[in-house]
Design a protein around this nucleic acid. Structure first.
Length: 702
DNA sequence: GAGCACTGC
């Protein structure tokens, strides 16, 4: 047990029972917090730490963690919970005896920056007492690390090697309100682990007040234990503690009438802020590159027309596919007498923080992914945001001083129609990777798994079907040996994993892991507007008749021959950052392949082997050109869906009779992205079962 | 001849 920090007889924390009996609320006691103020830390950093809002809950938090299996902490950004709570736990002895305190984050950058901040506060070298682990980077020392920050994805991988996470005494899951797939899987698994390890403590940290549902989820026993035994057995009822943030007040403005064109409304709002409000930068939330470009152009036109305000505005776009140098412009300080306007996607809602923003304009929309398990198509659509998102966006205006947020929707809409939280990612995504991961963790009854939010059964069944067809699961829906277990080890989509495993027998693993690495990033080309012709020409220099996959091999070869040069990328309209990521992923895949006993071998130009390996993973994505089609219409073998080759493919307008594709994107039509020519006989060869089971008597007859 | 919100292993 950790050292006792709570002394009976001293100022006792007050516990307030929720009337429904499910939730324990805790009222902070200022005097107990200040009584333990000078026990740790260096003067300057120590007093800085004490000024954080979370500090006055120090005793309360430690008390709750000690006495409850799960503690839910609701706190806005700026409360200091992420950097302070792990330190409080360490100071209270939770890292004694070689145990480790873990704190997960959804994003890599957050892991790195929080870890270095905490190492600095504790005056230790990063990677010793305080460390972090993210994909490609393990900055920990197993013999010394007491506080470890990591992405939730990394912790999930750790569960594969150590199913009970035995080295951790406390696991804090931060930003749980974002409800990413890995956070949700992690929460489900932690609940199971807790049943086997009653001494394990969980802290769930969330920005929204939806704590009740989280509390219900972690409430393993309805029976209350008496207070006399709580020192030995933690209470099963989760404790809930609310910590205020340190943001400044943000005044909210709503439009009086609904707007019909939010791009136009954005531009008018920005201009009137610039005209009437004191200095301070403006952050605008739109949905995507199209919106953003349109708004910037309109803003330029209107500012030009009214000369009085045309000067003084610096307008900058911000989205993830923007080249790095242009992205960095938004961080440069605003010159005196100027006003910066950053027009951004959701990237500025959580991933990037801009200093100096005083005004936020919120369109009320963002692009969100939805998955239809019946048609098996993922769709990116503009959809209304949730109240939680709207609050997060508004909060971006209050970081340096009191700010204002202009919502381009009515108050009536916000209050009555906006949903309070977004739909968890789990309920709007493909679940193939998620299901194989759970299988690898020994969860046999996938449909009965205790999720924080249950995914649609159709999506689960579809995922099971895909895994069965790949030979990853057997008739009893158990992982096959060795293919299933090996595929689960590879940190990629199972269809790609299957392709890699098949390349072993075909003698082309070096080429296939290159293709796998490139397929698992967004795009290796620079984003196309304005340089379309040049981009097309550059692509032609690498284009292979066999299709996009083989083209990728040419590109990668060229990149290596250039000495991985950024100028070479620039010259060929390639995204250098993306290529660097390809190199990293490829290196990780090489190591994973070696561990799985895959022989790394090049086929030395035998492209037939490469194409067969791709087919072994992606046979389910085969389609055939319609016999009398003049417009390049294909039908999928699996579902007879009408599909077309995407104009970005090197096979666009080539229209070979048979292709397999990597993915479908759905806009006005269904487009196949990354297509490759095949011989249809390879399909039955790769997956006889799959094609026999299709309804049509002979779907691949010539 | 079209368009890629954002993460992550």
């Amino acid at each position: 047990m950790p050292q006792q920090f709570w002394k009976p007889g001293t100022d006792k924390p007050r516990i307030l029972e929720d009337e429904e009996g499910g939730v324990v609320f805790f009222a902070p006691s200022l005097s107990s917090a200040s009584s333990s103020s000078s026990r740790f830390g260096y003067a300057s950093i120590g007093s800085q730490r004490q000024r954080l809002p979370v500090y006055k809950y120090r005793t309360a938090i430690l008390y709750l963690v000690e006495t409850h299996a799960t503690t839910i902490i609701v706190g806005e950004t700026g409360s200091g919970k992420t950097t302070q709570i792990p330190q409080y736990l360490k100071e209270a002895g939770w890292a004694d005896g070689g145990r480790v305190i873990a704190c997960t984050q959804p994003r890599r950058l957050a892991v790195q920056s929080v870890a270095s901040r905490v190492a600095e506060e504790m005056d230790v070298k990063l990677g010793e007492e305080v460390g972090y682990t993210i994909r490609f980077e393990d900055v920990t020392n197993p013999a010394a690390t007491m506080i470890k920050f990591l992405t939730d994805g990394v912790l999930l991988r750790e569960i594969m090697d150590d199913p009970l996470l035995t080295k951790y005494s406390v696991i804090m899951v931060d930003e749980a309100h974002e409800r990413s797939i890995s956070t949700d899987i992690l929460l489900g698994l932690l609940k199971k682990i807790q049943r086997r390890r009653p001494e394990l403590r969980l802290i769930i940290s969330s920005a929204t007040i939806e704590a009740k549902s989280m509390s219900d989820f972690f409430q393993t026993s309805k029976k209350h234990r008496g207070p006399e035994d709580h020192e030995f057995v933690p209470r099963k009822v989760p404790a809930v503690l609310s910590v205020e943030g340190r943001g400044f007040n943000v005044q909210i403005h709503y439009v009086v009438e609904p707007v019909s064109d939010y791009v136009q409304a954005t531009v008018s709002t920005v201009l009137s802020i610039h005209d009437q409000e004191p200095a301070g930068d403006i952050l605008v939330f739109l949905t995507g590159q199209d919106d953003i470009d349109a708004a910037i152009q309109l803003l330029a036109e209107e500012a030009h027309a009214s000369r009085k305000i045309s000067s003084g505005l610096i307008v900058l776009p911000l989205y993830s596919s923007l080249p790095r140098a242009e992205q960095d412009l938004v961080f440069s300080p605003t010159p005196r007498g100027k006003r910066k306007v950053v027009i951004s996607t959701n990237i500025a809602e959580t991933s990037l923080t801009l200093e100096g923003v005083v005004y936020v304009v919120d369109s009320g929309f963002s692009k969100q992914q939805f998955y239809n398990p019946i048609s098996d198509i993922e769709n990116l659509v503009v959809a209304p945001i949730s109240k939680a998102s709207a609050r997060q966006r508004a909060g971006r205006a209050g970081r340096v001083r009191p700010g204002k947020c202009y919502r381009l929707y009515t108050e009536e809409y916000f209050v009555n129609e906006m949903s309070s939280v977004g739909i968890p990612e789990m309920q709007r995504s493909k679940l193939v990777s998620c299901v194989i991961q759970l299988k690898a963790l020994g969860i046999d009854n996938i449909l009965g798994f205790d999720w924080p939010a249950s995914p649609p059964p159709e999506a689960m069944i579809r995922a099971l079907e895909v895994l069965y067809s790949l030979g990853v699961l057997d008739d009893d829906a158990k992982l096959t040996s060795p293919v299933g277990f090996q595929a689960a080890e590879i940190p990629l989509d199972p269809m790609i994993s299957k392709m890699i495993l098949s390349s072993n027998q075909l003698g082309c693993s070096e080429e296939i892991i290159t293709i796998a690495a490139i397929l698992s990033i967004q795009s290796i080309w620079v984003s196309g507007k304005g340089v379309q012709k040049e981009l097309d020409e550059a692509k032609l220099r690498f284009a292979a008749a066999e299709g996009d996959h083989v083209t990728f091999l040419n590109v990668y070869k060229g990149f290596l021959q250039s000495g991985k040069s950024s100028q070479w990328c620039h010259k060929n309209y390639m995204n250098y950052q993306a290529m660097k990521k390809v190199i990293e992923i490829r290196e990780q895949l090489r190591r994973t392949a070696l561990r799985l006993g895959i022989v790394l071998r090049s086929c030395e130009g035998d492209i037939l082997a490469v194409r067969k390996a791709v087919t072994a993973g992606f046979f389910a994505n085969a389609s055939r050109l319609e016999a009398f089609s003049h417009n390049g219409m294909y039908k999928t073998v699996r579902g007879s869906q009408e599909v077309y080759i995407h104009p970005s493919s090197v096979l666009f307008r080539v229209n070979p009779k048979w292709v397999i594709y990597h993915s479908l994107v759905s806009t006005d039509r269904q487009y196949m992205r990354n297509a490759m020519t095949i011989d249809p006989s390879w399909l039955t060869e790769a997956a006889p079962h799959f094609f026999q089971n299709l309804r049509r008597p002979d779907p691949i007859a010539h």
